[in-house]
Design a protein around this nucleic acid. Sequence first.
DNA 1: ATAGTGTGGGAAAACGTTCTCCAAAAATCT
DNA 2: AGATTTTTGGAGAACGTTTTCCCACACTAT
Lengths: 390, 390
Amino acid sequence: MPARWSPAGPGAAETDEGGRIVTDVTLREVARASGCSVATVSRVLAGTRPVGAETARRVREAAEELGYRPNQVARALRSRSTGTIGLVLPQITNPFFPSLVREVEHALHAEGRAVLLADCDDDPEVEAARIADLLDRQVDALLVIAADGKRSRDAVERAAAHVPLVLLDRVCGPGVADSVATDNATGMALVLDHLVTTGRRRICFAGAAGTGSAAVERLAAYEAEAGALLPHGSGRVELGDFSLEWGRTAVDRILPSRPDAIVCANDLLAIGVLQRLRQLGVDVPGDVAVTGFDDIPMMDLADPALTTVRQPVRALAAEAVHLLGHRLAGRNDGPRRSVRLAPELVVRASSAPSALRAPRGASSAPRAPRVPSVSSAEDTGSTRTPEVEQ
Amino acid sequence: MPARWSPAGPGAAETDEGGRIVTDVTLREVARASGCSVATVSRVLAGTRPVGAETARRVREAAEELGYRPNQVARALRSRSTGTIGLVLPQITNPFFPSLVREVEHALHAEGRAVLLADCDDDPEVEAARIADLLDRQVDALLVIAADGKRSRDAVERAAAHVPLVLLDRVCGPGVADSVATDNATGMALVLDHLVTTGRRRICFAGAAGTGSAAVERLAAYEAEAGALLPHGSGRVELGDFSLEWGRTAVDRILPSRPDAIVCANDLLAIGVLQRLRQLGVDVPGDVAVTGFDDIPMMDLADPALTTVRQPVRALAAEAVHLLGHRLAGRNDGPRRSVRLAPELVVRASSAPSALRAPRGASSAPRAPRVPSVSSAEDTGSTRTPEVEQ
DNA sequence: ATAGTGTGGGAAAACGTTCTCCAAAAATCT
DNA sequence: AGATTTTTGGAGAACGTTTTCCCACACTAT
């Protein structure tokens, strides 16, 4: 080891014969190289206190020369802040989440924070364990997409006692923590409004039976809206889970009641419905309109393209991060905030009025024009442009 | 602050009136409560050295009582290991990645490690910055899905000098770092073999022009295989990018040469191809067969369902983590390993032989039976070929 | 002159672990 | 019995920062 005491020569980082960096440069070494104390170097580099111009220059020079990079772990230990946020989610493979993760990651990175990712496999037990692990790792805060409305609650509540915590996309119980989610009621209202406006009257619902907030709220909203809008009240309701398979079976149960529209609580479910309907020779949207919820990627290329409710993903992420920032800045107290963001209706072929429907065949599939969002709270809205193909 | 010096009463964690935990329990407090030294407590809890039975019991009891949780940051500082792995990827919204991320995350968590996620927006500059940030955060190792075969290289190489680094799914240059990827050549061979076997002869290729390893290797494999298998050598080749849009345009360029099959370098691209073909009234698979690559989610519900090459996602993740473990355990040297895992052909409707094709209409969409993978070398799925790119 | 008032800089104490020494006690060997 | 080795436990030094003191010096205002 010859390079150990090299006096700040222009060799920068010290390497062994294999090219691996052997010694990480520390504050001490920068101090020695620039002829001043560790404290001074820290002050110059962190800018926490003014320091003489000449000294500052020497320090910066030495740091540059040696290729100094502050050790974030040491910094974290001393300053009690890791600059790290835990992101807990049920299943990254759920096609709705990647875009949300992306937006969250970018928003946090823009603030100089990093994201510790924890995938829970849709299991609240695992979720609790992962949360505990993240806390041990001293995350500054947690962003949680709860796996289950009921069974996630305990763990979330306990965690919220330690660090700022924001529930994202799915809430669990009132007052457990800050929360940011899509306004499911508004979304469902948009759908039903659209269907009724385009002449549908026998509107059924395929949903999920779980205790997740999406399942519960969307069902409730359907029942409320349908009860108000439709002559015979709400139509047949079938509850299973959020899967494609369930979408298929739901069709068999719903079809006997001769619906002219099937509202699905979720895009995946809607795809299953679409598949089964085609299999049975039911014409969509001629005989039955189908709608989804979420606008997961590729829904514009289902056959027919799926009318659905687009969640304001970027705005959700931004708002969640904003809330976290608020808690992190001030004292972590004050009342819980619960933010709901209005989604946007995306009308595609699967709900086109029968009159406008083109004959099935070789020619281009008909696409209804996109209607503008009825209530899109902010213009920061969505980047995704399913720029309708025609 | 009354609760400060409470003598290990059964109140466990100390809370203020708001329910927030004020004081995190440290080793010192456990030591005091159990009447022994910090060192001893550490030894008991970490199990680094045998300790008297009675003392151990007292310590464990006190720790339990106080709800002690080791501070991973302090531990990391001292032991120079954070138990954290950086996962760098081009775009989490690329539908191929979520499942890979999931498998990686699970595999790492099973080893008690956590994942720091960095999404680069497909930008090598951003990628370099994110890698640097992760290194500052003292990750134990890096798992990198390179954004670009060429322009990612520098940053990757520099990073590999600091920590163990495994390139995942996309390689960049030989000998830069360990790498684990799908054997694109085998995959392409499976496709062409299948097409030729089912009677296709005028097989064209829609690919990407980039320098990413997937783009390059799949093209090369197509040309090699087609040159060998087909009477007139390989067919028309069109290169753009990996997008759906390019798939659509590629069709317009390829169609004049009257192909009976279009091999796509990627599922997204294949979907675009499918869309445009349908728009133009070309029958798939009657007139033209279409194949993809990757088997991203939902490709079974495209219309027609897409024949494609399924990457061995779980095995890729497992192997990558295994390689990391190897580097982390031993000294971080020895020759670079390059592992290629054989993919699996998934035959669906889009490449059904014309004869077997069911009439378009109401009945169930035809599904060809899945053929078994032609070459899955070992049951771990691993074709361990150090250094080889055939 | 003396007392105030900044200002630039260093020494050293944290932060919560792990780990290296040492010392005492206990067990084993001559 | 003494001479070893083996256990068991404590004191305290790391790890690389940030931050709190405190001192020395140069001014300015009495």
